[in-house]
Design a protein around this nucleic acid. Structure first.
Length: 495
RNA sequence: GGUGUCGUGGCCGAGUGGCUAGGCUCAGCUCUGCAAAAGCUGCUACAGCGGUUCGAAUCCGCUCGACACCUCCA
């Protein structure tokens, strides 16, 4: 059997070229994908989640197409200075000092939170989730190579990447579209940069001061690795010197990803990545969500509704649906109104899908199922355009109601195809979950009780005892259980 | 100041040279004991000004505005 990917060709927007390109993996049938993970010194907010969700959707789609995907997403548990000055402190160390615990306790706590949250949003775990602290040796080796190749210098126990030297025969700035000379003329004045030859240089290794708790021995003395280096070390180790896809948030494009390219080229001479993908920001009140400014909203607040920005709580799947309704490269603004609209749309889609298995079949299909399926693939093949896919799914919902009402027809074979495709796109690729099914399966007793009330209400109605029937309906609604009268009887949902 | 992205109907969001996504809201209808729910129908927009073109939301120029990056951030 041939894989789907031989029929469905994916086009993706490559930040490096600024254009949509046909996706062709280095090794046919295999994809190596690296995504920059979180720095685990605080809880992830919804903006962080959006990026990981976007790449989860991409991961899911590539797998669906039959690619064997090795998805590597790191945990940054070391390095990462709070500022660029020489006195900059490691973020995790700082948090540990403030809370008077071990740095690895900080790391552990927020790594667990990160995993829990992503699981709630139904993100698949990556194939490999390496940590920066687990790859200190690899990082030191890369630094040695860069020094040997003449693109780094050590100074007072620290090692810096020599950007000017590198730019003499490489192109520093090719990813972010910057020119080094512009950067030099526009550099802001920063104090305490005495160790660097020039401000554009970045740290590969930082000397640890006496009080610094996260430290490792190295040829240059005790210290810790620079932030950009870990991704180069881990992507190279698990995906090779050249791999297919590198993803991350738009805000990492410069300097982080630019530095990764420079480090690879300076150490092994390879431009490391064929396709750079950048997920755009989630904004709140029109401004980027950010840990440092506090303009953010946390997943726990979404679920509980306990936030000044929300009127109620929303399920993880509704939040995921909301995010999937925008293209991953567009800025998306978070608001209660937008979430409310998504919730209604999401419920409508789920209700239509639940009708699928009970649809009547006919001798002929009046709907061209094959071309509908292809239109779903076309959407995803076009740079993972999930909003278009969702529009197609609502078209499918319309078909479902037409078939149900006898205004359209479908054969048994087509229905099976229709059903399996919808399931693939909604649950496997978009990663949505049907909450009513989940609710039904874990509360059989409650469901039985509600069914009983529905039966009693039905009897009351047939006796024209509307006082009783309305009491059952209204009081259940107050409890958050909504009865829905339809032609084939009464159903209910939890609101 | 530099680099980049973008400005779409009441709201959210696709599209990116002609065939006018989709969701929500709203209005009407169907169903109903009344509702709710659900379904159906309707609502023709592309910041402004020029230009290219038989034809532009879509390409080009200018103006205005927003956001992001240039300093840690997904």
């Amino acid at each position: 059997m041939t894989s789907l990917y031989s029929n469905q060709s994916v086009t993706l927007y490559n930040s490096l070229s600024g254009e949509k390109e046909l996706f062709k993996p280095i090794l046919e049938g295999n994809v190596g994908m690296y995504v920059c993970g979180p720095t685990v010194y605080s809880n992830v907010h919804l903006g962080n989640v959006r990026t990981f969700m976007s790449f989860d959707m991409i991961f899911r789609y590539l797998k669906h197409l039959g690619y064997k995907v090795r998805y590597v997403r790191n945990i940054t548990d070391a390095g990462h200075l709070t500022d660029d000055a020489d006195e900059g402190e490691d973020k995790i160390s700082k948090k540990a000092r403030l809370e008077q615990i071990e740095p690895m306790e900080v790391v552990q706590q927020y790594t667990i939170d990160f995993h829990n949250i992503l699981q709630k949003f139904n993100c698949l775990p990556p194939s490999i989730e390496p940590t920066a602290t687990g790859h200190i040796i690899e990082q030191i080796e890369i630094i040695k190579e860069i020094i040997d190749n003449g693109y780094a210098y050590s100074e007072n126990g620290s090692v810096y990447f020599d950007v000017l030297k590198f730019n003499e025969n490489h192109n520093y700035g090719k990813l972010s579209g910057r020119l080094l000379e512009d950067m030099i003329t526009n550099t802001r004045e920063l104090t305490a940069q005495s160790e660097k030859k020039n401000p554009q240089d970045f740290a590969l290794w930082k000397k640890a001061e006496q009080q610094h708790i996260m430290r490792w021995p190295s040829p240059w003395g005790d210290g810790f690795p620079g932030w950009h280096l870990e991704c180069t070390a881990m992507s190279t180790k698990y995906l090779g010197e050249k791999f297919d896809i590198h993803g991350g948030g738009m805000d990492l494009k410069f300097p982080h990803h630019e530095c990764e390219i420079a480090q690879s080229e300076a150490s092994n001479g390879q431009d490391p990545v064929n396709y750079w993908l950048h997920a755009n920001m989630l904004t709140l009140n029109g401004k980027k969500m950010s840990k440092s400014t506090g303009n953010n909203i946390f997943p726990a607040e979404i679920f509980s509704g306990e936030s000044p920005f929300l009127t109620k709580g929303y399920s993880p799947s509704v939040a995921r649906f909301f995010i999937m309704q925008a293209h991953y490269r567009s800025v998306l603004d978070f608001s209660n109104d937008a979430l409310l609209a998504s919730e209604k749309g999401f419920n409508r889609l789920m209700e239509a899908i639940n009708l699928l298995s009970a649809l009547p079949t006919s001798e002929k299909s009046s709907i061209d199922i094959n071309s509908w399926i292809q239109s779903c693939y076309d959407a995803m093949n076009d740079d993972f355009n999930s909003p278009i896919l969702i529009a197609q799914l609502f078209e499918a919902a319309k078909y479902i109601y037409q078939i149900k009402d006898g205004k359209a027809s479908i054969t048994q074979t087509d229905l099976e195809k229709f059903q399996s495709s919808i399931h693939a796109f909604v649950f496997d690729i978009l990663g949505l979950e049907d909450l009513n099914i989940a609710a039904e399966s874990n509360s059989d007793k409650l469901n039985g009780a509600i069914e009983l009330l529905i039966q009693l209400r039905k009897e009351a109605r047939s006796n024209k005892d509307f006082a009783t029937s309305d009491q059952i309906r209204d009081q259940l609604l107050e409890l958050g259980i909504q009865l829905k009268d339809g032609k084939e009887g009464t159903t209910f949902t939890f609101s």
